[in-house]
Structure formats: C-alpha cells, structure tokens
C-alpha cells in the first residue's frame, strides 16, 4: 500500500518544526526558506496549515520537464527532482497547479518534496501529529487529487 502525508491543520500550532526538519534533511541547515513544506499562518482564523506536494497522479511537473529531471520514485510514488539533470528552466514551477515546486536561486535548480525516500522528516518532527505518514486511503488525498483532475484544464 502506498503511503502519503496526511495533514490535519486543526492540530497544527505553527511551530515550524517540520520546516526545520525538512531543510536540515535536505540541505544540512535549519532554514525554513529552503523547506519543501511550508506552514501557512492565518492569524485572524487562528489557523496554521502545513502545505506541501501531494505527489499527485497527474505529475504536472514531471510531464512539463523538458529534460526528464523529475521522475517517480517507484517505492514511494514521490515525484523526485534529479538535481544533476535539472537545468533550472522553471517550467515545472508554473506547470504545477499546486505551486509546490519552487526554484532555488542558490542552486539554480528546483526543489520539491520527495517524501524523504519513504521516511518523511516533517512527519517525524511534528510534535502534534498534524502531519502523519499513512496509507494513502486515509488521507483524503484522493479527494485532493480528484480536485486536481477535475479542476485543471487537461485531464
């Protein structure tokens, strides 16, 4: 059974431990600006929403890439950027309707969530279980994906 990140904003306190875990895992520094998961703050609603790639089936980013720099990790289903191949053209950043592929000036390449190869650091770091890594059926992700399929122009 494939697993996915389940995000429950109700539980999130906005501590950003996930952002730090993500940037430390991928970049070796604590640097929320380089995290592939971002906690959005809605102060007036007292609401914090961790947000990252859903590893959608459409894989807009992967399809748009002109040099096959994004591929699917067979084990996790994650769409993974191969830094060595990425030319930094950024087409994937506009192709992804979720906005979860970001260009990183420091590297000249793009970065996105890769599920840490099946052991996501954000989920482990979250002190409130607002982010968990669970069987895909549980996540409501299917709904999210259905939305993507329906909503975006071509499916």
């Amino acid at each position: 059974m494939q697993r996915s990140l389940m995000i429950e904003p109700v539980k999130c306190t906005g501590c950003k431990q996930c952002e730090m875990a993500c940037s430390m895992t991928h970049e070796g520094v604590f640097n929320p600006a380089r995290s592939r998961i971002r906690v959005f703050e809605f102060h007036a609603e007292a609401r914090f929403v961790p947000y990252t790639c859903t590893q959608c089936a459409q894989a807009w980013c992967q399809q748009a890439c002109p040099v096959e720099a994004i591929s699917v990790d067979a084990a996790t289903g994650a769409k993974v950027v191969k830094e060595a191949r990425c030319v930094g053209c950024k087409v994937c950043t506009i192709a992804c309707p979720f906005g979860t592929v970001n260009y990183v000036r420091a590297t000249g390449k793009v970065a996105k969530c890769d599920l840490c190869g099946g052991d996501p650091a954000c989920a482990k770091a979250c002190p409130t279980q607002a982010i968990t890594y669970v069987d895909s059926d549980w996540t409501g992700l299917e709904r999210m994906r259905a939305w993507a399929a329906k909503a975006t122009a071509t499916a």
Partner: peptide
Amino acid sequence: LVHNQACFGCTIACGRMSQ
C-alpha cells in the same frame, strides 16, 4: 479561546489565540 499557538520551534505551544 479558539486555538493554541506555538512560537517558532516550540513544542509546548502555550500561546493563546482568542476571538
């Protein structure tokens, strides 16, 4: 009280959000 809020990095989250 509507929610609690953590400061950066805080796993206690004593901050209050009220409406």
